[in-house]
Design a protein around this nucleic acid. Structure first.
Length: 387
DNA sequence: GCAAATGTCGCCGTTTGA
DNA sequence: CGGATCAAACGGCGACAT
């Protein structure tokens, strides 16, 4: 009664930007970027048009969260500093992020898909894996039906990859973006996967990509052919074994349809670098605000934390963290603040700071045992992103 | 003088208890 | 009884992802 695995990866196309275009259809076809702080809300004009901010109007330390394909064509990309993006596309429209709107559309597209295929793994706000293994319908028809359901529910397009495992489904969903539909089998490995750069593998980031390039390995095919001893020498036994498997399209990970959160955090980058002593009052207020918001979030979700941690980023971008495990779980702002303050005492404060963060970990439901994956206790509904 | 916010996982060194 | 050892918890950090 066991069927061969059939996994889909659904990835919304330029998600935040596309949601904004639903609201501001006059921006369709223009380069638009999403990011930065609140003050760049579009301004309604008397003639019932709107005035939009441009990238060139921005000053500050923000980065772009995403951009329309027209903006990407100008070299603008996710994660890019807004000031830098403004040099490439000064006239591109800049919109602030509106997470409430994105969460709302996220919930809608996931619910629409769940009616067709309920075994869904959340991968953040704009993508999911779906286990299609037990469904009878033919793959292409199913893929088209999922895409149509997403469009009907949200007015948005997505790209879908369907393959025998998560690894290939994820690569596949990216192959024909936007509005893509890609079905991959193991037989497609040499023709469609091996020519791709190793960075397309989920889990090979900038560092591993650089180290592989230094060994003359740039494509997945080259990785598949690479000498296993060489890989072991440079990456260690575990990672080398993983590299060898993924290069051959092998991935046994299951679709995880429920999980409990591991940590909750709040952090902020200051408008200017602050000094622990000279700006003590400002830092104190920021810490209090972070702890308050973190506590609100914890209480709203019904969690308490047995570990509290801080994160500091110095002006030179180096980062340190400190954790403190408490005797009893806490969820109120005062207790979190006390613990965070204790952590701060263990960190050098003689250099200027650019970021402060507070984290709550080792989460458990108040008065119960520690949360652990697999337990029914903290299961998340489909719309766990929503407030 | 600059690159956000939030979250997960793996590795490794240290501590601690048995 | 000191020492070796082992496992679990803790803590710091890096890498990676959206």
């Amino acid at each position: 009664m066991t069927s061969l695995p059939r996994i889909a990866h659904v990835d919304m196309d330029a998600f935040y930007a596309s949601v904004e275009l639903l609201r501001y259809p006059e921006l369709r076809g223009l380069p638009v970027a999403i990011g930065g702080r609140r003050e760049h809300e579009p301004v309604p004009l008397p003639d019932s048009t709107r005035r939009f901010a441009r990238l060139r109007d921005y000053t500050g330390r923000g980065v772009l969260t995403t951009a329309t394909y027209e903006a990407r064509a100008l070299g603008v990309s996710s994660g890019m500093g807004i000031m830098k993006a403004a040099l490439l596309a000064p006239d591109a429209v800049l919109l602030p992020v509106d997470f409430d709107a994105y969460r709302d559309h996220s919930r809608r597209f996931k619910e629409a898909i769940a009616k067709i295929a309920p075994r869904i793994e959340n991968r953040g706000i704009d993508e999911i894996f779906i286990d299609l293994s037990e469904l009878p319908e033919e793959t292409l028809a199913l893929a088209r039906r999922i895409k149509a359901a997403v469009r009907d529910a949200t007015g948005l397009s997505c790209s879908i990859g369907i393959a025998p495992n998560k690894l290939l489904a994820k690569i596949g969903s990216d192959l024909e973006k936007p509005d893509g539909l890609t079905i991959l089998g193991m037989a497609d490995l040499p023709g469609r996967i091996w020519p791709l750069p190793v960075r397309r593998i989920n889990g090979i980031g900038p560092k591993a990509g650089e180290r592989l390039a230094a060994l003359g390995i740039t494509t997945i095919g080259e990785l598949a052919q690479a000498d296993t001893t060489l890989l072991r020498e440079h990456f260690g036994a575990n990672q080398a074994a993983w590299l060898g498997e993924v290069a051959h399209g092998i991935d046994q990970r299951a679709v995880i349809t429920s999980s409990a959160p591991k940590s909750v955090s709040r952090e902020t980058t200051f408008e200017r670098d602050l000094h622990a002593r000279a700006d003590r009052a400002a830092l104190t207020e920021i810490l209090t605000t972070l702890c308050t918001r973190l506590a609100e979030d914890l209480q709203r979700k019904g969690w308490a934390a047995r570990t509290v941690g801080i994160k500091l980023r110095y002006a030179d971008f180096s980062t340190v963290t400190r954790d403190l495990t408490l005797a009893a779980p806490v969820a109120d702002a005062g207790a979190i603040r006390s613990a965070a303050t204790a952590c701060l005492r263990r960190v050098p404060l003689d250099r200027r700071l650019r970021l402060l963060g507070v984290r709550a970990g080792a989460l458990q439901r108040p008065g119960q045992d520690a949360a652990d994956a697999g337990e029914d206790q903290g299961e998340l509904p489909l719309d766990w992103d929503s407030p």
